[in-house]
Design a protein around this nucleic acid. Structure first.
Lengths: 140, 140
DNA sequence: CTTTCTGCAAAAGGTTTGCAGTTAG
DNA sequence: CTAACTGCAAACCTTTTGCAGAAAG
C-alpha cells in the first residue's frame, strides 16, 4: 500500500471526499523526493493535462497540513509528504541545500532534549519543529 | 553594554553605517520579548514619531538576519533578536503559543543529535533550526 | 439528494525592484 | 567627498474571500 493510498484512506475515514485534484496532489507529493513548491505542483499538474485551479491547490495543501499528511519546510518553503506514523508524527527533516532533496528523520533523542528545555525554560512544551540543512550523499 | 549597543558595534565593525532607522529597529527588537512582526515594528516606530519607509524596514531586517543579529521564527513569523554568542550562534527557540513570548535557548545536546542524524541519513549537516512551542510560565 | 469541493473573479496582503536624493563616515 | 542607505513609486507574487455551479458519497 503506497503512501498516497494510505493518505486517501485516512482522509476518507475523516469524512473528506476524494476528488481528482486531491488525488493528483497526493500523487505528486509522493513522487517528489525534494518536495515541491506550490508553483511546481501547478506546473507538473499542467504537464499531466490536469489543471486544477491554483486556489484549489492552496486549499488542498492547507487541508493536508492540518491533517498531518503534508508539511511545509520553513527553510525552503517546499511541501513534503509526511510519513503516516500515527501519533508520533512529528516534524523532523534533513534538507539538502544543493538539490533541495529532503528526508523525514526519526530522532527519539528529541524527547530528552524537550524535557531538558522544559525544565530550563519553565515552558510546558507541546510541539516542536526541527530542520537540519546540509548536503545529501549525492551532492557532497 | 546592552544588546543593541553590541549590535551597533558589530555592524560598524563590518562596515555598515549606523543610521536612524537601523538604530530604531535594533532598539525595538531589544525591547520586544515576544519578538515583533514587521507590521508591529512599523506601528511602534510610528508611535515614537519615527517613520522610516516600510521598504527600508524590510531591508534592515534582511540585513540583520544575514548578519545573525535577528531571526525570523518559522512558527509565528515574528522577528527576534539573537544573542551575540560568537560562532556558536544558532537558532534554538521556545515560543509560547498563547502570548507569543519567546526565548533563545542553549542546548548543546543538539550536537550529538546532529552527529547521529548525519550518520543515519548520509547528509553532511551544516546548519539547523529548532523551535519548540508550548506555554510559557505565565500562560500555563 | 445533500453537503462538500471546485472554479472563477476579485480583493487584499506581502515582498521586490529601480532609481533619485540624502547622509554617514 | 564618496559610497552606502533611505524614501518613493510601481510592479510583482502570494494568499484570501465570496459565491455559484459541479460532483462525491
Amino acid at each position: 500500500m503506497t503512501w498516497a493510498e494510505q493518505a486517501v484512506a485516512t482522509l476518507r475515514d475523516r469524512g473528506y471526499r476524494i476528488t481528482g485534484p486531491r488525488r493528483a496532489v497526493l500523487d505528486l507529493l509522493e513522487r517528489a523526493p525534494a518536495g515541491v513548491t506550490r508553483g511546481e505542483l501547478l506546473e507538473r499538474l499542467a504537464e499531466r493535462g490536469e489543471s486544477p485551479d491554483p486556489v484549489s491547490v492552496y486549499r488542498i495543501l492547507g487541508m493536508l497540513e492540518e491533517n498531518g499528511l503534508a508539511h511545509r519546510l520553513a527553510e525552503t518553503g517546499r511541501y513534503v509528504h509526511c510519513a503516516l506514523a500515527g501519533d508520533d508524527h512529528c516534524h523532523h527533516h534533513v534538507i539538502c541545500r544543493s538539490c533541495g532533496r529532503s528526508e523525514e528523520i526519526h530522532c527519539p533523542a528529541i524527547n530528552d532534549l524537550e524535557r531538558a528545555v522544559a525544565r530550563a525554560s519553565g515552558y510546558r512544551i507541546e510541539n516542536h519543529r526541527l530542520e537540519f540543512t546540509g548536503l545529501c550523499g549525492a551532492c557532497q
